[in-house]
Amino acid sequence: MAAAAAAGAGPEMVRGQVFDVGPRYTNLSYIGEGAYGMVCSAYDNVNKVRVAIKKISPFEHQTYCQRTLREIKILLRFRHENIIGINDIIRAPTIEQMKDVYIVQDLMETDLYKLLKTQHLSNDHICYFLYQILRGLKYIHSANVLHRDLKPSNLLLNTTCDLKICDFGLARVADPDHDHTGFLTEYVATRWYRAPEIMLNSKGYTKSIDIWSVGCILAEMLSNRPIFPGKHYLDQLNHILGILGSPSQEDLNCIINLKARNYLLSLPHKNKVPWNRLFPNADSKALDLLDKMLTFNPHKRIEVEQALAHPYLEQYYDPSDEPIAEAPFKFDMELDDLPKEKLKELIFEETARFQPGYRS
């Protein structure tokens, strides 16, 4: 834990890192770190609560700039109880001085990944967590956004079992017609939660990839272990087919990539493993919904509104309290091709509203 900075004593240090967030945020305490930044909790002297502050230093890398800009653009436009918001952003007053960006968010005690390492969940908890994931996802999908990296560590939890989806750095506007060349190379989302079509096709992607990830998360809540822990690309596919069985001819016809289709045709026939054999203690309604989410063919996979209306979630289902976005989200430009200098300018502009004396 960093010592509390005395008023006016300059930035606090946390594990050798400068955290320049005073005077409003003090009493910093280390939480963890990701690929390009550290997260601390801090005391907000204005709202009198502890908050989470993520320090991001992305400006050396085009990919990190892209992810940072995506996350900020999306989260500043989203407003939903099951999606983490941005409360404040701290950065230098000029673009030349801006080396880091500090993002202030609600402090959540833990995440689903940490929880599943230590606790076996009751059916009631599984049901409530799944409902909140789908409630947040309904809003995301209504904005025409794909999260693309749903996994237990991106689901934040607090002691009252509130759940918030975080990390929109890989999110995209849904565009089933656009052929994202190089899709697989830039697709760094965790393999275990990846839909089979991501490994088999490169053309376009749809909201059904997020539903697949939610199915993987439900299976993990039922058993405290990942359902498809593939060691590499082909191993991942083999794990999936080992449980779902061989795809039907109709399902194979959806695979545009001939090499991928021929690979699947070359494999020995596998039978589907019954879900109640894998999860003998699970609620039968939970397994019915799991089956509809972990469907090989993305066109037959359940959609988020149908999933919310499934009998497993009937005690929570309330369409009048499951809000959607006001308007579909649009990125003005494809960020993939922009140089990091341009992305830095866009991050600077996007964060201006939090600067003292800002006038829109």
Rank of each mutant, 00 (worst) to 15 (best):
T190C: 04
Y25W: 04
K300I: 06
F19S: 14
R79M: 06
N271Y: 14
F183C: 10
F78W: 08
C216N: 05
P247L: 10
F129W: 06
I56A: 11
I53V: 13
E109G: 03
H178S: 11
L121I: 12
T110H: 04
R77S: 01
K99A: 11
V21G: 07
L170W: 05
S41P: 00
F348E: 13
K117Q: 11
E314K: 14
D318E: 14
F183I: 15
I95A: 04
F296P: 02
V273I: 02
E81K: 14
I86L: 09
E109L: 12
R191G: 08
S284P: 04
L121V: 08
Y131Q: 01
M333E: 05
M13L: 15
H180Q: 14
Q97W: 03
Q17V: 10
K203A: 11
P274T: 14
D283N: 14
L218S: 14
L308N: 02
I103A: 07
F354N: 11
P11V: 13
N47C: 10
L107P: 00
N154V: 11
H239Q: 15
L294P: 06
E322M: 03
L130T: 08
A143P: 05
A260H: 00
W212F: 12
L157E: 13
Y128T: 03
L258S: 09
S41F: 05
N47E: 13
H147C: 04
N238M: 09
F168V: 02
S153D: 03
K231Q: 04
D291P: 02
A42S: 14
A7R: 13
R79C: 11
H125P: 08
F331I: 15
G34K: 03
P247Q: 09
E345H: 03
V214T: 11
Y25V: 02
L130R: 07
A2I: 00
H269V: 08
L234E: 12
G245W: 07
K164F: 08
L258K: 05
N276L: 09
Q105R: 09
L264Y: 04
K48I: 11
T190G: 11
R91A: 03
A5N: 00
G182F: 11
S213E: 09
A309K: 04
N87P: 03
Y233E: 07
K99N: 15
K54S: 03
F129H: 04
S57F: 11
H239D: 11
I84L: 04
Q62G: 10
W212G: 13
P323Y: 02
P93V: 02
N87D: 03
L107W: 04
N47S: 13
V188S: 07
I83W: 00
A286C: 00
I90V: 06
Q66I: 00
I227R: 06
Y358Q: 13
M98K: 15
L163Y: 06
I86V: 01
C254A: 08
P274R: 07
R353V: 13
F279G: 01
F348C: 09
D179A: 15
Y316M: 09
P339F: 03
G182Q: 10
M199H: 13
N144C: 09
R79F: 11
N87F: 03
I90Q: 00
L134D: 09
F168Q: 07
L294H: 04
L75G: 04
Q105H: 14
V46P: 02
I133D: 07
E334V: 14
S29W: 04
H120P: 09
D332R: 06
L222C: 08
P298R: 09
Q97V: 06
T160N: 07
V14C: 11
A5K: 10
L241P: 07
Y30Q: 09
G357E: 13
A286I: 00
D318T: 01
V104N: 04
Y205T: 10
Y43E: 03
A52Q: 04
P11L: 14
H232M: 01
R77P: 05
R353G: 12
A4C: 00
L130Y: 03
G8R: 08
M108I: 15
S266G: 15
A309C: 00
E96K: 14
K285L: 13
A219F: 12
D100S: 01
C40T: 00
Q249S: 02
T351I: 06
R353E: 10
P58T: 15
L155I: 02
H180N: 15
D20H: 12
N224E: 09
A52T: 11
L130A: 12
L155A: 06
